[in-house]
Design a protein around this nucleic acid. Structure first.
Lengths: 227, 227
DNA sequence: AGCAGATTGTAAGGAAGTTGTAAGGCGACT
DNA sequence: AGTCGCCTTACAACTTCCTTACAATCTGCT
């Protein structure tokens, strides 16, 4: 579930946001001042942050800086009252994704959060989308395809993740746990054979001779390796 | 130095854009309403124009017309809060180069401006409302129509947006999130099937054999593609 | 070398998830 | 009220992924 950290000193606003976002299916972590917000961010690693600009102790900009020091990418939405307009600029410089001026409608804020999450999920989520080459195979992530000579091979998003991981750490052994974590995420059951199955299927498609793999080699008892 | 005219009535957004574009090395001319924008355009002859659609006095469309009366070529980027407002931009023959729906990230808008400037500098062309061809279909955005041989097909503004997006990134997979963002904007519910429905209906009209689509191909688990 | 146990490969079938699309409904515009 | 376009809903079709089961391979031990 998507975790949203809300830093807002006004109890009313905070509660209202908590209520409404919980209804939308988000997990909400409410913080009532800047210091708490920074603490909670560290502790909970939320997927999204709503920051009030004016807060006792650490203000929103300071909190933003602290958060950015830890996490370059997490989407941040600033909430500001009319009187604070001037510093919007600062917020955007600090890497905020959007800002909203109070008073704002419930629908509006939900729509914005959703839009930002959608955007960062598709654009930022996939790291570098640069092409790379493994053996005689040119992998083009943005096309979800690989090319051998002029022959096209279709790849799933998961295939690309596996290949990119192996490529990025070429020469090193990627153990099964790491692979499972990076590619499948938290809900991977170690006793499942899904990983083996996937490697097998992938080899069938990308290796000239799947019995003698040149791209994804297995290191028995350890994991897989490229090169 | 490249001069950019920004016409935007919201002080937040205008200031933020001014700041950020100045940092990028552009010379920024801010205007807070339509009349001012037209005046400043005459006085300063900027190399690029960002136009908010909704402005007091003269709205973005009107400003655009005035500017085009003077200068056919200057690149114009429309900014709007509502995805539907872009329909008008596409429908009128305004000669817009691109459009963005709010909320947008700072990085995003810089990227677009740079892209447009690069495009127009090398005369590669490609305005948002320029005609383009997909397979045997000629799409004419300003008429909201497509032609196959001499047969006319009606298109909605939304159809045009979908097709244009696929056309611009041909070969690449456009994931559903991006499509939703660019075409529907903020108020798209991810759990809705509106997107699928729209693709299905669109295929029925533009594909010779909707069961074997040649223009809008689906990439299972990822999105759609044209090539 | 030969064997036992552990690890990995892979085919087959079914579960789960994704996409296609017909039908009905709601609201905007006339 | 009627029409039109778009959205939601519901279900069908399809694709992918996972589980299972068994075969093949490897490791370490005797």
């Amino acid at each position: 579930m998507t975790k949203i950290l809300i830093a807002e000193d006004d109890d009313h606003t905070r509660d209202a946001l908590r209520e409404v976002l919980t209804m939308e299916g988000y997990e909400v972590i409410p913080a009532s001042d800047g210091l708490q917000a920074v603490d909670f961010f560290r502790a909970e690693s939320p997927d999204f942050v709503c920051l009030d600009v004016m807060m006792p102790g650490l203000n929103g900009y300071e909190v933003c800086k602290q958060i950015r020091r830890q996490d370059e990418k997490v989407p941040i939405l600033f909430l500001t009252a009319k009187a604070e307009e001037i510093d919007t600029v600062l917020g955007l410089e600090l890497g905020a994704d959007d800002y909203m001026t109070k008073p704002f409608g419930v629908k509006e804020i939900i729509a914005r959060i959703r839009a930002i999450l959608r955007r960062t999920a598709s654009r930022g989520g996939g790291r570098a989308d640069d092409d790379f080459t493994m053996d005689d195979l040119r992998i083009v992530p943005t096309e979800l395809r690989a090319y051998r000579d002029k022959i096209e091979l279709a790849l799933s998003p998961r295939d690309v993740k596996v290949l990119r991981l192996l490529y990025e750490r070429r020469g090193k052994v990627i153990d099964r746990n790491t692979l499972a974590d990076e590619v499948w995420g938290v809900d991977y059951f170690p006793e499942s054979r899904a990983l083996d199955q996937h490697i097998s299927q992938l080899r069938k498609r990308i290796e000239k001779d799947p019995a003698q793999p040149r791209i994804i080699r297995t290191v028995h008892g350890a994991g897989y390796r490229f090169e």
